[in-house]
């Protein structure tokens, strides 16, 4: 099942994009925005951010989903428009990359799929309860793992994987609840 940018827009409709989507686009294109942020810390390069998210989605999404790159990029563009949320994403991705380099010698996105999966579990992101202000495991769960699972399963394409074309959070109208199974 192919994910598209239209699915990304639908996922954003469920959870909301910030008012500065263009900010996110510029950042993702890596056009000179890799300097220190307002806190004075060096954030991970925005291109790396996208790579990391796509690499994580390749682990988190089932194999019957295709078109992950465009979907994740589109979704992330919108989410980075919410500045506080964007800061949380950057910090969590930074922590994930730090662990990847420390334990596996490479950035997360550069690891084999199996190693990415293993790393996420070794961090504890599989069993952690999401918490935007919690431990590394809880923040990776909130800002990376659940961010991507929310994007997929609140979108119509993700819902259809389960048999629910209008999942909770998606404004899919008032027809589907009346229809029988296909």
């Amino acid at each position: 099942m192919e994910l598209t940018r239209r699915d990304a827009a639908a996922a954003l409709a469920a959870v909301g994009a910030g008012g500065a989507v263009a900010f996110g686009v510029d950042r993702l294109r890596g056009d000179g925005s890799d300097g220190p942020d307002a806190s004075g810390q060096d954030p991970p390069a925005e291109a790396r951010l996208r790579e990391t998210f796509v690499a994580a989605a390749e682990v988190l999404y089932p194999s019957e989903v295709s078109g992950i790159g465009g979907f994740v990029e589109g979704f992330l563009e919108g989410r980075l428009g919410r500045r506080d949320h964007a800061d949380g994403i950057r910090a969590a991705v930074g922590a994930l990359d730090d662990r990847a380099v420390s334990w596996y010698g490479e950035r997360f996105a550069a690891l084999a799929v199996e190693d990415r999966d293993r790393l996420l579990r070794e961090i504890g992101a599989d069993t952690a309860e999401e918490d935007p202000e919690g431990t590394t495991a809880e923040r990776v769960r909130y800002y990376v793992v659940n961010e991507l699972l929310l994007a997929l399963y609140a979108s119509p394409t993700g819902g259809e994987l389960v048999g629910l074309e209008n999942p909770q959070g998606h404004p899919g109208g008032t027809e589907s609840y009346r229809r029988g199974p296909k």
């Binding site: 599989d126 699972l149 929310l150 819902g159 999942p167």
Partner: peptide, 12 residues
């Protein structure tokens, strides 16, 4: 399903 996914201890 989306709420189940966000609390599950697995993925993929």
């Amino acid at each position: 399903p989306v709420e189940t996914a966000l609390s599950a201890d697995t993925w993929g």
